[in-house]
Design a protein around this nucleic acid. Sequence first.
DNA 1: GAGTGGTCTAGACCACGAC
DNA 2: TCGTGGTCTAGACCACTCG
Lengths: 232, 232
Amino acid sequence: MLASWQAIRDEVLRRIRDRAWRPGDPIPNEADLAVEFGCARATVNRALRELAQAGVLERRRRAGTRVALAPVGRAGMKIPVLHRDVVEAGRRYGHRLILREVCRPPAAIAARMGLRAQATALHAVSLHLADDAPFAFEDRWIDPEVVPAILAVDFAEVSANEWLVENMPFSEGDMRIAALPAPADAARQLGVPEGTALLAVERTTWREGRAITHVAQMFAPGHWMTLDLVTG
Amino acid sequence: MLASWQAIRDEVLRRIRDRAWRPGDPIPNEADLAVEFGCARATVNRALRELAQAGVLERRRRAGTRVALAPVGRAGMKIPVLHRDVVEAGRRYGHRLILREVCRPPAAIAARMGLRAQATALHAVSLHLADDAPFAFEDRWIDPEVVPAILAVDFAEVSANEWLVENMPFSEGDMRIAALPAPADAARQLGVPEGTALLAVERTTWREGRAITHVAQMFAPGHWMTLDLVTG
DNA sequence: GAGTGGTCTAGACCACGAC
DNA sequence: TCGTGGTCTAGACCACTCG
């Protein structure tokens, strides 16, 4: 008698782990499981829905429910907001705007954001400070056609990152991370020799099929970027 | 009359975007919203639960539901499984086990995993290959008390990462990323000069409050780690 | 103590899509 | 076509926690 959706979820996981149900196999339908577990179908549905959301099961109407063949390891992740990270580390956050212009982006950026040829974008280069020491150099492009309001935002007041996170929720994106030698401009701003290895993060964010922003950040040596993984 | 949980979710989002409900504000309780929307409380519950899971709302019993103060940009993320990444890039994946032992971990690792003093753990050092070229050096510790079955797994057959992703879903964790100079062992295995800047990733994974595994990976120069952000 | 969210139930209808 | 999952309902009880 399993009468909570968590208990049912755990039992299903146990059967998968014990190979009673193998990847690719169909599992009994909700009604049958409800009988077996002695609970309502809605309770089974809740458990299986969570497992499907986590990528453990695959569900299709009429076809039924199967154990996922290649269980994608999926996790929730908090998008790092530099301001918050710095403050939570007990340090004083600062932000310096180095450049703000509206112009045509380089071809590489335009391609990555899927901008029309000739299109202009808002370009903001800035430095993030912790206790007055620079720790991140940021080069960002924003498509003003997707985010018209951004043109009126005073980046001296609030960083583009913060404004976007607060005002453009529910977006998709891709993130690329590497260790790169510092280019001249980043090296100068961060106060390190050119060619020093830096943590580089590039992120492009989308909303309804259009690119909102593309940002490249380079962090001072010794910086650890931390991600919280939730609900694996 | 809103009678689907998606419609209610969208309406709540609209009110937040329109500043009718501001960050930090409490919103009406489920029963009142059910009356307003002309639907059952369970339907409102479903909508608000999804929004809370996405970080848009914060819910506490008795205290009620509020618009999240600092809307954490949260995103779904696929945990990178090196095998799959390599294959999807059209290259041949290989895996070489360098060391497998059961011993007492160094204090730093034990502390990070919250192991008892004197406790032993499974230690696996391995190399990931793409087209026979090494591209990632991995140093992993696994708590056999949490994952007894791991002791019987043949790491020559399947990498620890893959086995864990398939068999220990639903975990939490934290991930730390930096650019580091290559230590001697990693440098030798990856075939680069000692001190070369490498992308370093550390991940500790938890299940029900106990550490499952701690892994440190160092990637060959030029490697970009990519994360898909879904459902921001 | 009492109000709120968290959950379960039994039943119902519907949409999708495999057959 | 018709079985399956997806969802909604009305009601109920419980757990947590704030005042």
